[in-house]
């Protein structure tokens, strides 16, 4: 980690991209991917902001992020089950009504 600033800027960029996509996307799967990418940005910030210790990454930050990765897959699995159940019962894969007109 020679240039932590680059990684922080990357995390900010990923967070912004994810946020933008989360706001404009209507398909729930796309919104889920957006949240996952925002989560990756947060993981990057956690590890990089902990800094180096004797030339190695901080073990506590790494363990927290490892926990986070596993929790994230559990959350994604639950979210996917909700999306599939919604689609099977209503035929929709979006939380917004089809005739919704944003231009009003």
């Amino acid at each position: 980690m020679n240039h932590p600033q680059i990684w922080m800027l990357l995390a900010a960029g990923l967070f912004g991209l994810g946020l933008y996509s989360l706001l404009i996307a209507r398909h729930l799967l796309r919104q889920l991917i957006a949240i996952k990418i925002m989560g990756s940005a947060v993981f990057l910030i956690l590890v990089v902001s902990a800094g180096l210790l004797d030339g190695r990454l901080d073990g506590i930050a790494q363990a927290l992020v490892l926990t986070g990765i596993v929790i994230a897959v559990a959350a994604v699995a639950f979210a996917l089950a909700l999306v599939v159940a919604l689609a099977e019962q209503t035929g929709a894969v979006s939380l917004e009504p089809e005739d919704d007109d944003d231009d009003r």
Partner: peptide
């Protein structure tokens, strides 16, 4: 989702 032919949402 494809199998239940879910309606694709419109573009924003």
């Amino acid at each position: 989702l494809k199998r239940v032919n879910a309606v694709e949402p419109a573009d924003p």
